[in-house]
């Protein structure tokens, strides 16, 4: 009997996720309609369908092999820290245009400094480094390469 924890491990969860993804992909492949009638192997559905079939076969192979393996490799490391990075990045992307480059990036760098524990006990250095990081990439993209970055009230 497999433990629930093992079934939820990446060794199982990722192939299962790929299986779901492949099923959605295959279903969408069957809905592709060419304007002119083409034989199957010359049409736009052939390779996606072949790729899906191969995916199913390989994913089943990987899952069966995983079931037969007596134990799952332990995944060392932290779980929460990468989650916080993803959350901070998601929020950054969401507010990037509304808040403009300057403010959103500064807040993002603050968040990353907290997550990566950089100078969190030295508030002045913490703020100065965050300002420097924000400014350096502003200079790179907006000043040197002339890219128009999002602004807040016409300011960076």
């Amino acid at each position: 009997m497999m433990s629930r924890q093992r079934l939820l491990s990446m060794e199982f969860a990722l192939p299962v996720f790929f299986l779901i993804l492949t099923t959605i992909y295959l279903a969408a492949a069957f809905t592709i309609r060419a304007q002119i009638s083409e034989p199957f192997w010359q049409g736009p559905r052939a390779i996606p369908i072949v790729a899906s079939v191969m995916m199913y076969a390989l994913l089943l192979f990987v899952l069966v092999r995983q079931f037969r393996t007596s134990n799952t490799k332990a995944q060392p490391g932290e779980i929460l820290r990468p989650v916080w990075v993803v959350v901070a990045t998601g929020v950054y992307i969401y507010v990037f245009e509304p808040l403009g480059y300057g403010l959103s990036t500064l807040l993002y760098v603050f968040a990353l400094f907290f997550i990566f524990e950089f100078r969190t006990r030295q508030p002045l250095a913490f703020v100065i480094y965050a300002l420097v990081v924000t400014a350096v990439f502003y200079i790179l993209y907006a000043v040197i390469f002339g890219v128009r970055l999002p602004e807040l009230f016409g300011v960076i």
């Binding site: 992307i93 245009e97 990353l112 400094f113 990566f116 993209y141």
Partner: peptide, 27 residues
């Protein structure tokens, strides 16, 4: 410091993916 380094890399990666197409979707 790796904290400083990875924070900088995160910013350059995300802003970089924006500047190429000016698209939040690509980001």
């Amino acid at each position: 410091s790796r904290g400083l380094l990875y924070s900088g890399i995160a910013v350059v990666a995300l802003v970089g993916s924006y500047v190429a197409t000016l698209s939040i979707f690509q980001m």
